[in-house]
Amino acid sequence: MRMSGIAVAKRLLSREYLPIGLLGGAAGAVWLFLALAGEMTEGDTRAFDRRLLLALREPGDAANPIGPPWLEVVGRDFTALGGTSVLSLLVITVVLYLALARKRAEALTLSATALGALALESGLKDWYGRPRPELVPHAVQVFTASFPSGHATLSAAVFLTVGALLARVQPDRRLKVYVSSVAALLALIVGVSRVYLGVHWPTDVLAGWTLGAAWAAVCWATALWLERAAPRPPP
């Protein structure tokens, strides 16, 4: 008997099949990352990157982002949410809370997600060595290569994992959706701010989102499998 697409989706999102669904999503995200990387390496994304980056600048004045002057300040505030310092503080604070609450598995999951994402984006930056955009001035200082975006990678990995931890303890489905949506929105605005400030090509950010989401899904699926395999205490 064939199942409909909705039935398959519900089954994959159930607790029993959630790890399989997560790994399937991670595989799709990795495929998208490799496709972006391949197109970028061959130079096929150049026209798209230039067009979108210049679309966020005043016509005839590439030094000024579109919008009023205060919008650039907002962009800097948003981009700071994905910085290593801010995310490190967030991760340390949440991990300590989880440890004190005796939720060691959750603490290890978040730690592994954050550290793994940092290692992945750092290694891939060195591997691809893509220069930063030269079309427009940079609104903030940058010191590393461009592909993939570290801010996009880390914010996607950390915010999505924290969102999943919070959503898991919510009894109301509406609250689960709300928490997950806020986590995704935070990762979204961090990535967009990097392009708006002229420090990343759009494909850098797209690659960072896919990489961070894929790694978060792998860590979460692994944690669920380990939790299921662990012996349960007697009642």
Rank of each mutant, 00 (worst) to 15 (best):
L34C: 11
T113H: 02
I6G: 01
L135W: 10
R104E: 13
A187R: 02
P148Q: 08
G67C: 11
L32W: 12
Y17F: 15
V177Y: 10
A183E: 00
V30R: 08
M40R: 12
L36M: 06
S88I: 05
R51G: 07
D126I: 15
L13P: 00
V205K: 06
G123D: 10
A223R: 05
L89F: 12
L160K: 01
A216R: 03
L54Q: 03
G163M: 10
G75A: 08
L211S: 01
A27N: 04
L71Y: 14
R168E: 13
P231I: 08
R11T: 11
G5N: 09
P69K: 14
D126W: 15
A207Q: 06
W220N: 03
P202W: 09
L206A: 13
R194N: 00
L53A: 05
L34R: 10
A183V: 01
L34E: 13
V136Q: 08
R76T: 15
S88Q: 09
L81F: 14
Y178I: 12
H138P: 11
L108R: 08
S149T: 04
V74E: 02
A157K: 09
T93V: 09
W225S: 01
A37N: 03
T144R: 13
V142L: 13
V177H: 11
L36S: 05
V218T: 01
L34K: 06
P19S: 12
A80L: 11
P19K: 13
G191R: 08
V177T: 15
P171D: 10
C219F: 06
L135Q: 06
P235E: 14
H138C: 13
A99L: 15
E227I: 00
L185R: 00
G123E: 11
P233C: 06
G82V: 02
A221W: 07
A99S: 11
P19E: 08
Y97V: 14
L87E: 10
T210C: 10
G5C: 06
A217K: 03
L197M: 08
V205L: 10
R11Y: 10
A105E: 12
L197F: 09
V8H: 08
A167Y: 02
L100S: 05
A207Y: 06
M40H: 02
G5A: 15
L87V: 03
V140I: 15
E106C: 04
V179S: 01
A37K: 01
Y196R: 06
V74Q: 06
T113W: 04
A47G: 03
A112R: 11
T41R: 14
V218D: 00
L12C: 04
L34W: 09
V195Q: 07
V142A: 14
A63Q: 13
S155L: 04
H138K: 09
C219Y: 04
L154M: 15
R132F: 04
R76A: 13
L54K: 01
